Simulated scan of single mutants.
Amino acid sequence: MTPQEILDILEKEFPDADSELYFEDNFQLLIAVTLSAQATDVAVNKVTPALFKAYPDAFSMAKASVKDIESYIRTLGLYRNKARFLLETSQMLVSDYDGIVPDTYTDLIRLPGVGRKTANVVLAVGFKKPAIAVDTHVDRVAKRLGFANENDSVLEVEKKLMHIFEAKDWAKAHYLLLLFGRYHSTARNQSDAYVLLEALKEKHQL
């Protein structure tokens, strides 16, 4: 089964593959992805409506206090650190980028709490630039499919996926592999990933 065949199967299973986070602009996307570290999208989506109503942009959030932000995200893991990151990120966006989320990897990772995965999600989803983000689901699936070795780092997995898939498919591959890992090849489901894919292939009569 080729990498392209895998994407074709997963596209049938997830025809609307996209971020499951709620956001209306790149600032909200950046904040939501930052909050999603060690938290489910469902949990993040429960807190962001009120958070974004109170602080719809970098300028308003930059004026908040850490305690103010904490009160909106208290149900999330690591909420104290995340509140500090959100405040410091908003302040840097205002001071260095006129309140606008930058569109380069180098600038994005300057922001407090923004790592490689978050930067790549913002680039791919927010700016439609070729980027492939590796989270726990993508990392697990890539290794189960033999795209990467079991002891590869996140960066090594990312580089191998970028080599396997065409640049135009990087963002799509991220979400398809992520959803496959979230709903089929889960951490608890030790079934062979290719057996799971064959079942989906049969399901969709491919």
Rank of each mutant, 00 (worst) to 15 (best):
M61L: 11
M61Q: 01
A62G: 04
K63D: 08
K63L: 08
K63H: 10
K63W: 04
A64N: 03
A64H: 00
A64P: 00
A64Y: 09
A64K: 00
A64S: 09
S65C: 01
V66S: 04
V66K: 14
V66W: 01
V66F: 05
V66D: 02
K67E: 15
K67I: 09
D68G: 03
D68S: 07
D68K: 03
D68Y: 03
I69S: 10
E70R: 08
E70W: 03
E70H: 01
E70K: 13
E70F: 04
E70D: 01
S71R: 07
S71D: 07
S71H: 05
I73V: 09
I73G: 00
I73S: 04
I73L: 01
R74V: 10
R74P: 05
R74C: 01
R74F: 13
T75K: 13
T75P: 07
T75Y: 08
T75E: 11
T75I: 10
T75R: 13
T75L: 10
L76Q: 05
L76F: 12
L76D: 06
L76H: 12
L78W: 08
L78H: 15
Y79V: 02
Y79K: 08
Y79N: 01
R80D: 14
N81P: 14
N81S: 14
N81K: 14
N81A: 15
A83E: 02
A83G: 09
R84G: 09
R84Q: 14
R84F: 01
R84W: 02
F85Y: 14
F85A: 10
F85T: 07
F85I: 07
L86P: 00
L86S: 11
L86D: 02
L87C: 10
L87I: 06
L87F: 12
E88V: 05
E88H: 13
E88R: 15
E88P: 15
E88C: 07
E88Q: 15
T89R: 04
T89E: 10
T89I: 09
T89A: 09
T89W: 05
S90K: 03
Q91C: 00
Q91A: 12
Q91T: 06
Q91V: 07
Q91D: 07
Q91P: 12
Q91Y: 06
M92E: 12
M92H: 02
M92T: 14
M92I: 10
V94W: 07
V94Y: 04
V94T: 04
S95A: 15
S95I: 11
D96Q: 14
D96E: 15
Y97R: 04
Y97V: 04
D98M: 09
